[in-house]
Simulated scan of single mutants.
Amino acid sequence: MKNIAVIGAGTMGNGIAHTFAQFGYKTNLIDISEESLEKGMKTISGNLDRMVSKEKISEEDKTNTLNNITTFTQISEGVKNVDLVVEAATENVDLKLKIFKQLDEICASETVLASNTSSISITKIASVVSNPERVIGMHFMNPVPVMKLVEIIRGYNTSDEVTSNIMELSKKLKKDPVEVNDYPGFVANRILMPMINESIETLYNRVAGVQEIDTVMKLGMAHPMGPLQLADFIGLDVCLSILEVMYSGFKNPKYAPCPLLVNMVQAGKLGVKSGEGFYDYSESRKAEKVSGQFTS
């Protein structure tokens, strides 16, 4: 695989494109919004600048990485003659099904179709593709250029050959791929999201405040970031979406989203992306000031 297309120029999409391009792959970054593409490329350039300043890469490496990326606003143009498409659109099942239907119509039959979904069934996504054996999950972690893990999710029909090829490709990106089977939340979010949800329940029940909960988990459990701060960085809307997928898939009340999480999303308090979540990011993108909700 030498030619890659990434659909979606948001946080995950631009991070995935950055990573492929940095390792020498010709990468097409696709988004229907020209503004999103410009923002995504600005993010990639900024991240590369930081890597140069830390002497992790050279200026030449930065230039080569940017030169490996071409942007497109039309999927039909962006996926021409590529070996792999990685869909990194919003975590919405209807949107993903629509994209994969379109990919099935315009991509060559041998093109591997991957989704960066963090919870939606790969088998369900593959059900709209004429040859579902080529559909697989590549769940990168954020920030993509830094985090080593890639969950490789096999759908019910994903072939051994496709799985093996994607595992090897991930290793060429200096990632550590882990193969998992297709159940709601896979492994990472099946474990992580109930922990985050329980942390929100703990706040909702006034057991402790935001900083106190995060401090307990950081100092007591050696977590690099507290669960409420992590939820802010993931996006509270994304956390809610994943929990809803797991609750629907397992029919188990332990996955039911906390009412506080639901209310915060409805109020537009989505975390870092909106400027406020459990912490206030209005002055900077660092969690410096606790918001007023149920703080001790």
Score class of each variant (00 low, 15 high):
Ala126Asp: 11
Asp104Thr: 02
Glu105Cys: 00
Ala222Phe: 15
Ala208Leu: 07
Gly137Trp: 03
Leu113Val: 02
Ile242Gly: 02
Gly40Trp: 12
Asp61Phe: 05
Leu103Gly: 03
Ser296Asp: 12
Glu212Leu: 04
Val128His: 01
Met264Arg: 08
Gly209Pro: 07
Asp83Tyr: 10
Met138Gln: 13
Ser109Asn: 12
Asp176Ile: 05
Val290Thr: 14
Asn131Met: 12
Lys286Trp: 07
Ile32Asn: 05
Ile106Arg: 05
Asn28Gly: 02
Ala267Asn: 14
Lys98Ser: 15
Ala89Gly: 09
Ser118Asn: 09
Lys62Ala: 06
Glu77His: 06
Met221Phe: 15
Thr27Ser: 07
Pro184Ile: 04
Ser199Lys: 10
Asn142Glu: 08
Asn3Phe: 07
Ser58Arg: 14
Asn92Gln: 15
Thr117Asp: 04
His18Met: 07
Glu34Ala: 12
Ser76Gln: 14
Lys80Gly: 02
Gly40Asp: 07
Lys175Glu: 04
Ala108Gly: 13
Asn116Met: 13
Lys171Ser: 01
Glu283Met: 12
Lys171Val: 07
Asp280Ala: 04
Ile57Glu: 13
Met225Thr: 12
Ile191Gly: 03
Gln229Tyr: 04
Met138Pro: 06
Asn165Ser: 14
Gln74Pro: 00
Pro184Trp: 09
Gly78Met: 01
Glu91Leu: 09
Arg285Ala: 10
Ala88Tyr: 07
Gly137Cys: 01
Thr295Phe: 10
Leu173Trp: 10
Cys258Thr: 03
Val82Arg: 02
Ala267Val: 01
Asp31Trp: 06
Ile16Val: 12
Glu38Arg: 14
Ile191Asp: 07
Leu103Phe: 00
Gly185Pro: 13
Ala256Asp: 10
Phe23Thr: 09
Asp232Leu: 10
Pro194Val: 02
Asn181Pro: 01
Ile44Trp: 04
Lys124Glu: 14
Val180Tyr: 08
Leu230Trp: 06
Ser199Ile: 06
Leu48Val: 05
Lys286Leu: 12
Val265Lys: 10
Leu260Asp: 06
Asn68Pro: 05
Tyr255Met: 13
Glu151Trp: 06
